[in-house]
């Protein structure tokens, strides 16, 4: 009997060790994290930051890199402007989406596109500190000395077709998002890293105009 108990604990301690991503351990105090994440988010009305995006095509050993400027304004306005090596603008204002590429611009309802709707919701949840409450994902939180790692697994089939998992890396200093890592079933992934983050600065309604 004792052997079974020992085996049981060995197995589950190995499981929990194996499941935590490299460099991270399971969070020790989840309620405290949730509380502080929500509190920090309450104090943030706008965000402006630079971002770099890296699309990794694993089998092809290829990385497609781009960069631009990210803006957010409460309650639900997001702007991603790619500036190099191509020009591309995405504005989400409520349930309206505006896209401008190098040739044309287009606007539509985010409700007509589940992927846009869900990605937008994740971004807003992260900024508002409610990422763990999103019912379309199961979530697990890990930590190391510098960051929290929110591992979100989609429940919706429409989203599962694109992403196996979304990892969100949150800075322990100010509870802001450092990085999104969107992982596809094929092993390819897209990493968006935010730098030069400015909170509550000169972001205005004009940045989120949807024509």
């Amino acid at each position: 009997m004792r052997n079974y108990v020992l085996l049981f604990f060995t197995f589950f301690s190995w499981m929990s060790f194996a499941q935590a991503p490299k460099g991270y351990t399971a969070i020790k105090d989840l309620p405290s994290f949730k509380k502080k994440f929500a509190e920090a988010s309450k104090a943030v009305n706008t965000i402006k930051s630079d971002f770099t995006q890296e699309k990794n095509l694993s089998v092809l050993s290829e990385k497609i890199k781009s960069k631009g400027v990210f803006m957010f304004m409460k309650q639900n306005r997001t702007r991603m402007e790619y500036t190099s090596p191509f020009k591309y603008l995405l504005v989400i204002n409520g349930d309206k989406v505006f896209i401008k590429d190098e040739q044309k611009s287009n606007s539509f309802s985010s409700k007509s596109n589940k992927i846009f709707e869900n990605i937008n919701k994740i971004m807003i949840d992260c900024v508002q500190g409610t990422a763990l409450e999103n019912k379309n994902f199961t979530s697990v939180v890990y930590e190391n000395d510098k960051q929290y790692l929110l591992e979100l697994t989609p429940k919706l089939k429409a989203f599962k077709d694109f992403f196996k998992k979304i990892n969100i890396f949150i800075d322990k200093k100010d509870y802001s998002v450092n990085k999104f890592d969107m992982i596809e079933a094929s092993g390819d992934n897209t990493v968006i890293t935010f730098t030069n983050k400015q909170f509550n600065t000169n972001v205005t309604d004009a940045n989120f105009v949807v024509k």
Binding site: Q53, L57, L60, Y82, L90, Q103, N106, M182
Partner: peptide
């Protein structure tokens, strides 16, 4: 209208891959 990035790559096994993603990385 759709836009995105199209990668053409010759692989070591003599195959050529053509991959089309949108600007945000969605394949």
């Amino acid at each position: 209208h759709l836009s995105g990035l199209l990668l053409m790559k010759k692989m070591q096994d003599d195959t050529t891959r053509v991959v089309f993603t949108n600007e945000m990385g969605l394949k």
